[in-house]
Design a binder for these strands. Structure first.
Lengths: 330, 330
DNA sequence: CATATTAGCTGAACCGATTTAGCTTATGAA
DNA sequence: TTCATAAGCTAAATCGGTTCAGCTAATATG
């Protein structure tokens, strides 16, 4: 059923019907009677406006786009959930697309989404060259980068404070009794890896426990790296460290794989701190503290940035959120 | 940049430009030269067609919709990931919306999505009355229900075989050495809960170990229920069962919360079987078998059902997938 | 009674593409 | 030379709404 059919049934013009259905009746002085008649018929026939036609004419789409490297990552799923909810409450739908961490795919997605006239693109981006995003902004589509970005970008960004979080996380880990400390981190060429290590080091120096460092190991943020770093440590020391800092959730998984395979049980007195979080850490039978991104807050800020952009209130928002430190000492 | 501008620049008509950009040049005998000129200019100016306009005219949208109760659920996130990828490879984008398990929200979503002219709705549905989905189908939008549905529906469905999976999962659990068996399940008024228990019972009877059942407890599939059922068991027996069957992942979580709080360590010789799966189970320091839905296969079948519907090849597809049983004996 | 104002509604343009019948011009055949 | 055919392209209708200037009839005002 099209607007025209509905209008005919109600004995009014397309214009009148449209005006009523969009709630502009007052402004156009449409009489109560006519309104009721139209609305009732619309309900009766389950009339729903064609969003393509409406959007084309009034140049909106009520669509937002979210680009993620991978929807399966627990954190990104959480982010999606919150963004979707906020979008929905605000009358938008969310197109979620994955780049699979591939630059070309991401660029293709941005172009396609631009053509779809999404009203904003929110992206956990993998690219190093933002020109495709600048293109989008030039065409009037606001862009917000979450979680990561190349320094110097002119786009809106929202990230979490790695340095501060690493420091606090380390401090939490140190509140237990002293002992050998191991640090397993990622590629030091990357900003976030470096920041995490800096935070860790700072906390150690300030606490005066720097001499307890047994190992500092930088590899990369893969499960395999975690496994191999723990293997090395074990070969060297014939035991686990009393305190362990893993720079990512994946590293933690690697370490767990190793201990599951080679250890009878995890020592309960271990103080383990890791970046990345999951409710599952609450269930592990030993102490593991974590630093989690505040994805809900991130989603909220993203929507606020959008509001600001829609109203052209602010030129650029660069937001740094804190991470939540979760202390799980048993 | 609109098609018209591009056409003007290239010195051709809108029609010609459109024909070329859509790859119909051959059919319309547009010369090589003209094609090249148009395509080059399009690339140079990063021309992207307005999908609303194109879709309106040619009545397509290249949009698929996915409705989920909750995006955070690990299984649904996995399903989304696979569906998104398949959709993307087939030239579609995916609108993901959550119903938050609320009937009204789900119905509202279906209506909105209908108006958006999505080309299909794939739904993990919470409603008991499918009329809003039937409405959608009447308007030419195919619907596929995943994971759950009320019996008697005329919609396409894809689910997993709970009965068979429970049976196999129980058999896996029984391969260890005999001992006290506990079953923690959900509300027996629900089909899936009943089916799981039936499968469990059948396996026990066939194996002749039915007399080892220490407890059968039906409550509901909540974390709290898991906690409380294990608490009861522990109070009664002062120990854990040798074999434990939990009917859902959430129940498993509840049990883990209890053991983490009240037990020194999880006995390694426990044979635990649970519905629901996560990579995290690979990391737990004891044996926990699981039955996981084949979400990737589910996504694949869903897309195939869509193909069939688009071609009007089949009237109705009702698919039952097996669950994958993962044996994790340490 | 004439004119101004208001209430209530509508016609027609428009959004930006796709689609198809058909118009030129060039080429070939008779 | 003349007509048929083919090559290459375009004009105009169309999709289904929104938007706004403006029309008509009714009421108010002087």
């Amino acid at each position: 059923m099209k607007l025209e059919d509905l209008a005919r049934l109600a004995g009014v013009s397309k214009s009148t019907a449209s005006i009523i259905l969009n709630g502009h009746a007052e402004r156009y002085r449409i009489s109560e009677k006519t309104c009721e008649r139209v609305l009732e018929l619309a309900k009766k026939h389950h009339y729903v406006a064609n969003a393509q036609a409406a959007g084309l004419r009034s140049s909106n789409s009520k669509l937002l786009a979210l680009i993620l490297p991978d929807l399966l990552h627990h954190g990104f799923a959480e982010l999606s959930k919150h963004l979707e909810r906020l979008a929905r409450k605000a009358g938008y739908q969310l197109i979620i697309s994955c780049s699979d961490d591939e630059t070309e795919m991401e660029e293709k997605l941005v172009r396609t989404l631009t053509g779809r006239k999404v009203e904003a693109i929110i992206s956990v981006s993998t690219v190093t060259d933002y020109s495709v995003y600048y293109q989008a902004e030039k065409r009037g589509i606001p862009v917000i980068l979450l979680d990561r970005f190349q320094s110097g970008t002119k786009l809106d960004t929202i990230i979490s404070d790695d340095h501060q979080a690493a420091k606090e996380l380390t401090q939490t880990m140190l509140t237990g009794r002293p002992g050998a400390i191991a640090y397993f981190g990622g590629n030091q060429a990357l900003d976030n890896c470096r920041l995490r290590f800096q935070g860790f080091s700072e906390a150690l120096e300030e606490s005066g426990e720097a001499e307890n460092i047994a190992t500092v190991h930088h590899l990369d943020y893969s499960v395999e790296a975690g496994y191999s770093m723990m293997k090395d440590y074990f070969r060297q020391h014939q035991s686990l460290p009393e305190k362990l800092f893993t720079g990512s959730f994946t590293l933690m998984e690697g370490v767990l794989q190793f201990t599951r395979k080679h250890l009878d049980k995890m020592p309960e007195q271990i103080d383990w701190a890791t970046f990345g979080d999951s409710y599952i850490l609450d269930l592990l039978p030993f102490t593991i503290h974590s630093a989690r991104q505040q994805y809900e807050e991130m989603a909220k800020q993203a929507m606020e940035s959008l509001d600001a952009k829609f109203d052209k209130r602010e030129y650029q928002r660069q937001i740094v959120l804190s991470r939540e430190i979760i202390c799980r000492r048993i």
